[in-house]
């Protein structure tokens, strides 16, 4: 029973949604189902929040290693939730726009959320450098091709790349580094990307079919 009901639901909904694409009258079914999903996912958030409190709470109470981090997480979670729900400091009151200037939630957003998010994203610059330093080694022919391509793209995206070949006559325009860079992106990269996308689409089709037909059921638990 625990296995059969989900399988039947998957089978029916899967086929209905596939066919709804071809009938204008039922086209909006897909949208309705995505709204259903959002509702379920929102309710599941309570489970997520509960798990967070339980896990990190236990860590703090038992003074497990790293409990200080857990405490910060709990304070952040509960604090943001409370000032958001109660609209603390909101000049328009409890019925006002949650994003109104001057409210505590906006302060959290402006002075914590924004800088923290941007900082994490900015870490990429550092990690790209260290990964590039390690990965781009001319170990073999393929690696040399990769290295040269990376070089052209990087160079083509800087002012020096433009300046380096600006003296070339108009007939040799295609040899200018920014133009070679965009040729690599538009022709070579695009061809590769399309091939990967075709492979991915076929993978999605076959996985979806396996799920809809009930051949793949390990996502419901064991075999």
């Amino acid at each position: 029973m625990k296995r059969t009901v989900p399988l039947v639901i998957t089978f029916v909904v899967g086929w209905v949604l596939i066919f709804s694409v071809f009938f204008p009258y039922t086209e909006s079914l897909g949208e309705d189902f995505s709204v259903f999903f959002d509702i379920i996912a929102s309710i599941a958030f309570i489970l997520g929040g509960g798990s967070l409190i339980k896990m990190f709470g236990a860590k703090v109470i038992k003074r497990q290693p790293g409990w200080g981090y857990a405490l910060v997480a709990i304070v952040g979670f509960v604090g943001t939730l409370v000032v958001g729900l109660l609209k603390t400091g909101n000049p328009e009151g409890i019925t006002g726009n949650v994003l109104a200037e001057g409210s505590a939630i906006m302060a959290v957003y402006d002075y914590m959320f924004k800088p923290c998010g941007a900082t994490m994203f900015a870490l990429l610059a550092f990690y790209v450098a260290s990964a590039a330093y390690r990965a781009f080694r001319a170990k073999n022919t393929e690696a040399v091709i990769l290295l040269v391509t990376a070089f052209i793209i990087l160079f083509g995206r800087t002012f020096l790349g433009t300046l380096a070949t600006i003296w070339l006559p108009e007939q040799l325009d295609f040899l200018k580094i920014p133009n070679i860079a965009s040729w690599i992106m538009i022709v070579l990269n695009q061809a590769g990307n399309r091939a990967i996308m075709i492979g991915i689409s076929l993978g999605i089709i076959s996985t979806s079919l396996k799920v809809i037909l009930g051949i793949e059921r390990s996502y419901l638990g064991s075999e």
């Binding site: 996308m197 993978g203 076959s206 996985t207 396996k210 051949i215 793949e216």
Partner: peptide, 27 residues
């Protein structure tokens, strides 16, 4: 890409799962 989707069939080794890989290749 597709190897991610092939993984479940590959790891299970079941014939009916492997069949989906073959179908993917035909695609």
């Amino acid at each position: 890409g597709e190897e991610l989707f092939a993984a479940s069939a590959y790891l299970s080794g079941e014939p009916k799962q492997l069949g989906s890989l073959k179908g993917q290749d035909m695609g």
